[in-house]
């Protein structure tokens, strides 16, 4: 089957760079399955799981906390804010983050800019999806 190059990088390191058959990425406006030859796109990501398919089977599942992805016919570059293989996620860590993010959200007042409110809400959602991902692992 045809393949494309999937690259997954976080600010701290390059996590993945190889030919895959399909990748499912959690785009901000809905999960997106990418196959080779996809139309070029730039999307933002929300917290969620990236699934990788190689040789007809799902081989990798990684949690990303948000970020961007650049899709072109031959390659997909995911710039993740943070990325962790599902197996390494800890529920305690996720719960701690939810608590932190929710506290931050409570502190946001109506006077703050919309961008700020959105960012706080985004953080809570990302933390919750981390917990979901941890439970799914």
């Amino acid at each position: 089957m045809a393949t494309f190059l999937l690259e997954l990088v976080s600010p701290e390191r390059l996590l993945l760079s190889r030919q895959v058959e399909m990748a499912t990425i959690p785009a901000a406006e809905g999960e997106m399955g990418v196959l080779p030859g996809h139309a070029p796109m730039i999307v933002t990501l929300r917290g969620g799981i990236i699934r990788v398919r190689e040789n007809g089977a799902e081989t990798e599942r990684l949690f990303v906390g948000g970020g961007f992805a650049e899709v072109s016919p031959e390659r997909v570059t995911v710039l993740a804010d943070e990325a962790t293989p599902l197996a390494n996620l800890s529920r305690a860590e996720a719960e701690r983050r939810i608590a932190e993010a929710e506290a931050a959200l409570r502190e946001v007042t109506a006077e703050d800019t919309e961008v700020k409110r959105d960012a706080a809400l985004e953080r809570v959602l990302s933390a919750r999806s981390m917990l979901d991902a941890a439970q799914a692992a």
Binding site: E7, S10, R13, L79
Partner: peptide, 11 residues
């Protein structure tokens, strides 16, 4: 850290 910065620049 370099790959991320490079891809970011391209985007």
């Amino acid at each position: 850290a370099r790959p991320y910065a490079e891809r970011m620049e391209a985007i």
